[in-house]
Amino acid sequence: MPLDFSLLYFANREATDPPSEYELLRRSAQFADDNGFTALWVPERHFHPFGGAFPNPALAAAALAAVTNRIRLRAGSVVLPLHDPLTVVEDWSFVDNLSGGRVDIACATGWNPNDFVLAPDGFADRRERTLDGAETLRDLWAGKKVTRRNGAGAQAEVMTYPRPVQPELRLWLTCASNPQNFADAGARGMNVLTALLFQRVEDLEPRIRAYREARASAGLDPATGVVTVMLHTFVGESDDAVRAIIREPFLRYLESSIDLWRTKWADLGAGPRDKLVAFAFERYFRTSALFGSWDRCVTFARDLRAAGVDEIACLIDFGVADETILGALPWLTKVRDLAQD
């Protein structure tokens, strides 16, 4: 099976020039569409510059539908406890029609309590709401009705419109590092979207195995489930050249999210912020990102493929200048092509 490559966006920046805020999104999407990449992943984030350029992935996907022709358009991810599944299906069915049937959705539980000012009652049981809500998404997408209380206090059966182009909705479950989440995704016939933020490649392999075993136990073909791994990405001709380009912007990117990952990495301790950020940069560069020379990145991609990964979602918008990112995308295309050998 080929190793798919996609682009993923999670911009960390305050918009200093709002009219050009989404130029990188548009131009890199067109490059990916023209050069055989698999998908474009757009997140949902709220109330913080870390990812906050994307408060609604369906809006971003609708814009991308208008400038692409073949590439898949994916929510990476919808924070499902913040929403009624009815509105999620309405929004993404619209994008499915606009794109000619190119929509997929990853569902996430959410983690930041402040995001839940949008749905305060959804935080405590967010995991259960996500798993149950994913089943509701599937049913609504397939044309089933749900019963809800209407404005007059009566029970009403409703189904969503517009009807989507695709008869079935492909779903991913976003999994950080909890092995149970991988197994739950497998048992429910969902794909997996994960990352190396809080796990290593050697940790990932048994979790992928548990995912495929759960699919088999549920009567599903274990080989058909897709495991997608998000990696921060910048590929160039040499490690030294890449390090010189990305170091300062990536350090700023890490600094902006330190309060999140500092609580997740027990081995970081409680040292000074600058040392923690520098430690994290080296960890990413050496073991947890698609950073460096094209040949180094080919080796890493092949290692992930050997561990059971089906797709690499390349996060490209972490603060490097737009033109520099776009100029490096041909190197990423080379990595994709050579990683198949």
Score class of each variant (00 low, 15 high):
residue 4 D to M: 09
residue 8 L to Y: 06
residue 9 Y to T: 07
residue 12 N to Y: 06
residue 15 A to N: 04
residue 17 D to Q: 11
residue 25 L to C: 05
residue 26 R to N: 12
residue 28 S to W: 03
residue 30 Q to M: 11
residue 31 F to L: 05
residue 31 F to K: 03
residue 40 L to E: 06
residue 40 L to A: 02
residue 41 W to K: 11
residue 42 V to C: 13
residue 45 R to I: 00
residue 46 H to Q: 11
residue 46 H to M: 10
residue 46 H to C: 11
residue 57 P to C: 08
residue 64 L to H: 10
residue 65 A to Q: 02
residue 65 A to D: 02
residue 66 A to E: 15
residue 68 T to Q: 11
residue 71 I to W: 09
residue 77 S to R: 09
residue 78 V to T: 12
residue 79 V to P: 03
residue 80 L to Q: 01
residue 80 L to P: 02
residue 81 P to L: 03
residue 82 L to G: 09
residue 89 V to H: 00
residue 90 E to P: 05
residue 91 D to N: 13
residue 92 W to C: 04
residue 93 S to Y: 07
residue 99 S to M: 02
residue 103 V to A: 08
residue 107 C to D: 03
residue 112 N to I: 10
residue 113 P to Q: 02
residue 115 D to T: 03
residue 117 V to I: 11
residue 118 L to K: 05
residue 120 P to Q: 10
residue 122 G to S: 03
residue 126 R to V: 01
residue 129 R to P: 14
residue 132 D to C: 15
residue 134 A to T: 14
residue 135 E to S: 15
residue 138 R to T: 14
residue 140 L to K: 08
residue 140 L to C: 10
residue 148 R to V: 15
residue 155 Q to R: 12
residue 162 P to E: 04
residue 165 V to W: 01
residue 174 T to M: 13
residue 177 S to Q: 12
residue 180 Q to T: 11
residue 184 D to R: 02
residue 194 T to S: 08
residue 199 Q to H: 09
residue 206 P to W: 01
residue 208 I to N: 07
residue 212 R to M: 08
residue 218 A to Y: 04
residue 219 G to P: 12
residue 223 A to G: 12
residue 226 V to S: 08
residue 226 V to D: 02
residue 228 T to V: 01
residue 242 V to N: 01
residue 243 R to E: 04
residue 246 I to S: 01
residue 252 R to D: 01
residue 252 R to N: 03
residue 255 E to S: 15
residue 258 I to G: 13
residue 258 I to T: 12
residue 259 D to S: 15
residue 259 D to I: 01
residue 260 L to C: 06
residue 261 W to F: 15
residue 263 T to I: 09
residue 270 A to Y: 07
residue 271 G to H: 12
residue 273 R to V: 03
residue 276 L to C: 09
residue 277 V to S: 00
residue 280 A to D: 06
residue 289 A to D: 01
residue 297 C to A: 09
residue 302 R to Y: 04
residue 304 L to C: 11
residue 308 G to V: 13
residue 311 E to V: 01
residue 311 E to P: 04
residue 314 C to T: 08
residue 319 G to L: 09
residue 320 V to G: 00
residue 329 L to G: 03
residue 338 L to A: 14
residue 341 D to V: 08
